[in-house]
Each structure stands twice: as C-alpha cells, then as structure tokens.
Design a protein around this nucleic acid. Structure first.
Lengths: 218, 218
DNA sequence: ACTGCAAGACGATACGTATCGGCTCGTGCG
DNA sequence: CGCACGAGCCGATACGTATCGTCTTGCAGT
C-alpha cells in the first residue's frame, strides 16, 4: 500500500544536508520564517529543490532538523568548554545535569540564567520562535518539538527537584512537574510575549518567588 | 508623501465588516490558520477581496479585529449574565475585576479556573492559538496583541495582587507584575505546548505553589 | 455624481511534482 | 586488476496549481 519508495539514506549527501541546514537557519534569521521559502533554501544552499523534498516533508521539518543539529553542536561546544577543568572524558556524552550544591535556589538561578542567555542569543532566537510558533498551531509538530527538544532539557529540572524533595528543601506534596513549570512558565511567557525584557535579575526573582512563595513567611 | 487615500470610514458597511469577522473566525476554527486565505474569507463572507484589503493590512489583522469583536461580545454576555442579580445598569461597562473576599488563594483559584475554561473553549482555541503564534514571530503584531487583549486582563490581577500586598498577604518586596507571571506563565506554558492537560486541579496547584512557595514552611 | 461594494481578471510568487543529464557509487565480468 | 554497467542521488529546471495583493468593471446607495 505504501511502496512510496524510501530513499536510500546510506547514499545521502552529507554535504547537501549541512548546506540545507545552514541555508535554512540563515534565511530564517534574515528574513523571518514566513518569507523563508523552500525554493529560497534550495537556491542559497546550491541544491535542487527535489533534494529537499526527498528528505523532508515540510519547511518546518527542515528547520526542526537544522535546529536539532545546531543545538547538538552547541551542546557539544558548551560541554567541551565547561568540561575543560573537569576532564569529562572522550565520550562526549552531554547530559550536564543541574548542579547540586545543596543550595536549591542558587542552583536553579544558575540554570535559569543560562536559559535566559540562550533565549536571548540572536543566533537561536529566530529559529526557536519560528518552531515554537509553528508548534502552537500544528499539534503534531508541537508534540515533536516538545518531545525532542524540550523534554530532555526539562527532565534535568525534574531530577534536581526530586533530589531537593528528598533533601527536604521542597515540600513533598508538590509534583516536580508542576514545580518545574512554575519556574519555566514565567520565563517562557515573558520571552514569547515580549512583555518585558528577559534578564538575569528576572530569573533570580522567579526563583526567589517560586521557592519562597508569595505569602510572607510567618 | 502619503496621500494613499484613506477610505471614508463613515461610509463603511457594517454588514460586510461583521460578515468578514464571522467568516474569518469560522474558517480558522474549521481549516486552521495556515489554510485560511483572504480569498476564502471573502468568498465565505460574500464580499469582494478588495473590501478586505481596503480595511485591513493583513490576514492577522482581520483575525485580530474579529477576535476583539468576539471577545467584546462575550464579555458583554458574561457581564449581563453575572450581573443579572446586581442590575449593572445600562452602561455595559465590563470591568468585572477580581473578587476580593480576603482569601487571596481562593480568589486567584476562581479566576485562574475561569482562564482555564476560556483556554479550553473550542470556539476560542483556534483563533487564540493562531494570533498568539503569529505574535510570537511578528513582534509588531505581538505587541498589539499583548496591548489590546492581554494587558487589560492582566491589569486586573495586578490590582488584586497590590491589594493583597497592602493587606499583608503578599510580601512587599515582590513586583506584582512578577507575581502575576508566576501564576499565568505556567498556565500558558502548558496550554501553548500541550505538555499535559489543562485542568482546574492544575490551576489550584499553581496557586497553592505560588502563594505558599515550593519550600516547606518552617 | 461620488464612493463603497461585489466580482473577478491579472501578474507575481511559491508550492510540490516530474524529468533531465551528470556524477558517484557498488557490482560483476573479463 | 580493470573497466563497463546499472542504480540512485544530485543540481537544475519546466510544469501546473494555489494564493497573494493590485487593478478594473459595473452596480447600488447616498
């Protein structure tokens, strides 16, 4: 029923793949998602349109792959950079995790600040916005986006928060998932809606509010 | 330099305007934003394309107006409904505000639950998603969206939170704006990314966490 | 008469598909 | 070992369709 030939991936040109990734990311940051066209990507990458249509089902899929590639490389770089003093070994396994110094608020601030920097990085902003927006409207793509990009990152928070619960730093009756969203939600809200600038100070504020609560401690 | 004739709005057909609003909303919920076209809206509304292009600069603008209209009417209805016992008079001034029973958590839960219901309303979901997504990518439109739709709603929270601060229910050193985002952010996050279903229970959980804090009270 | 309106023709893009040589492989025969 | 040969991806481009935003044409309301 579906002899819709599957192309032989072993013969795929890695050169073209990378050129397409780069062209897609460049165009998205230059002219925006709406005006980024498949034909434009093909032209800029020096590639035939069919080479794109052969391997990807949609513009969003191209961008998703390109972004995953970019994020992967960025993670490797970051891993190599931050691991300079620790000698992380040669495996390249990323999983940096969230530090656990025992001071929950300080640990969270560190990571939330990093997230702020990431969101403010001009090289990542346009593609991230484009993919997020597309995922908001297209449920299928959104699920893929969440599963491939967001979940792995958020899992780190969950483990750290669980550890905090065991250490008695977080109430036992709170779902770590909810706690996580209490931290990430406001950040994303401000970034997505651009209501106010996204700063380290804001990240700190969020952590303090979330951990300490809005109500005064008796 | 810009004698780009401004159409005479006094001669504008209100009938066409409403028909366009309705057609735009219907199409967006039926076939999604991407496949909603200006020509489709015109055809469904029984108007000429030029009538749309004359009064709106973009598809998003049409939808924004249509949505504002819808929200306005919904607010009137809700106001009329809830005001049945109070006899709000003939002004129709909406401004329901957030109740202040003295119990901050209970008041917030009430409003957050209402927001959850609104977000889950199938008639509002598609257009809201479409506009939000568009605003995420298009800064200009996003600002308009926030200014016209979100800010008025959020201002209610700010006043209620300020009252809570004066009553000593909220720490004085917290920016009401931040407190607000601590409540709304997680809700929007879950709705936009569809990570988990959005329920009343979740709204309650958010309020409890935000007010009480993640850390156990000594 | 003036002007907004419905209807639709029009050129400009972008879409997704279909082919066309060119090139690079793997294979098998001599 | 060497070389022809077929398969399949590649760049390129032509094609028909869809949508865009503008422009033109009557018609109707004021």
């Amino acid at each position: 029923m579906a002899p819709t030939k599957a192309p032989d991936s072993s013969r795929r040109s890695d050169r073209s793949r990378r050129a397409i990734h780069d062209a897609a990311l460049a165009l998205v940051t230059e002219v925006g998602y709406r005006r980024t066209t498949i034909e434009g990507i093909a032209a800029r990458a020096g590639v035939g349109k069919q080479t794109i249509y052969r391997w990807w089902p949609s513009k969003a899929a191209v961008l998703m792959d390109a972004f995953l590639d970019l994020a992967g490389r960025a993670a490797e770089d970051a891993g190599a950079g931050s691991g300079s003093g620790a000698g992380s070994g040669g495996t390249g396994e990323p999983a940096p995790g969230i530090p656990d110094t025992g001071d929950l608020a300080a640990d969270l601030k560190l990571v939330l600040r990093a997230t702020v920097d990431e969101l403010n990085d001009p090289a990542l902003e346009a593609p991230t916005r484009a993919l997020t927006a597309e995922g908001i409207v297209d449920a299928k793509l959104g699920a893929e986006f969440v599963h491939k990009l967001l979940d792995p990152q958020l899992a780190l928070y969950v483990t750290r928060l669980r550890a905090a619960q065991e250490a008695g730093d977080v109430r036992a009756d709170v779902d770590p998932r909810t706690a996580l969203e209490l931290l990430i939600g406001p950040l994303m809200h401000r970034w997505l809606l651009r209501t106010l600038p996204l700063t380290h100070a804001y990240a700190d504020e969020i952590v303090d509010c979330a951990v300490g609560g809005l109500a005064p401690r008796a």
